[in-house]
């Protein structure tokens, strides 16, 4: 589990970031005493640091330069300032990435993951299985009883999301949002059309009833 240190003085944002990142499966710590930020960083040795620029006492830039003297830990600047000069300064002082407030949460998470994954192998499960079905996200196929169907990118993502929540109702809005986070920008109607197509393909496997519609709530497998 990756350890992330948040250096942010705005109390509410600090707390909510902590919740958000914990929910995303990270171990999160916050700097509380801005006089001794460096000591805390040395003690904790985090895998990634989220660094604000406007801090009490010492600003983020000089802090970043100081951290670089003893560690190569990835540093992601999160800040309200957004001019090119700020960005340049952040990157030249050893920051690894720069994201400006107000940030979009999926983008923030994606950048954190990208920084953490550097050098690590991406870990996407090769297969997802449920009730005799095997979803192969790399080949884009769904198999059951030795038969296989091909899925389009959109269909694949929908199935992936459903397979990740077996037995749960996935609300339509959650599905649409999940797709948007994966760069498939479709509306509610198009989702219905896609579900219909998947069902047709499933019928060719003889399993037309895999996806159930919960009226007014969402879909479930």
């Amino acid at each position: 589990m990756n350890k992330i240190l948040i250096v942010e003085d705005e109390k509410l944002i600090q707390e909510e970031l902590e919740t958000l990142l914990s929910n995303a499966g990270f171990t999160v710590m916050c700097v509380t005493d801005f006089e001794n930020t460096l000591t805390q960083i040395k003690a904790e040795m985090p895998d990634l640091i989220l660094l604000d620029i406007n801090l009490p006492g010492q600003n983020g830039y000089s802090l970043c330069a100081l951290i670089r003297q003893f560690s190569d830990v990835p540093i992601l600047f999160i800040t309200g300032r957004s001019t090119t000069m700020d960005e340049l300064q952040a990157l030249t002082l050893g920051g690894d990435d720069f994201i400006s407030k107000p940030y979009n949460i999926p983008i923030l998470l994606a950048r954190i993951n990208a920084l953490l994954k550097r050098g690590q192998v991406a870990r996407q499960p090769a297969y997802l299985e449920y009730n005799g079905f095997t979803l192969n996200p790399i080949a884009g196929t769904l198999a059951a009883d030795g038969k296989e169907i091909e899925l389009t990118k959109t269909e694949l993502k929908i199935m992936y999301c459903l397979f990740e929540h077996p037995g749960e109702i996935v609300p339509r809005l959650d599905l649409v949002e999940y797709l948007w986070d994966n760069e498939i920008h479709i509306d509610d109607n198009t989702l219905s059309v896609n579900i219909m197509r998947i069902r047709e393909k499933l019928r060719s496997l003889g399993k037309g009833d895999l996806i159930q519609t919960k009226r007014g709530m969402g879909y479930k497998i």
């Binding site: 705005e10 309200g80 949460i105």
Partner: peptide, 16 residues
């Protein structure tokens, strides 16, 4: 820049 702080706060709150 001051406005961005509460906006970010609201977004995080809603997201959580």
């Amino acid at each position: 820049h001051e406005m961005k702080v509460p906006i970010t706060g609201i977004q995080l709150l809603c997201e959580n």
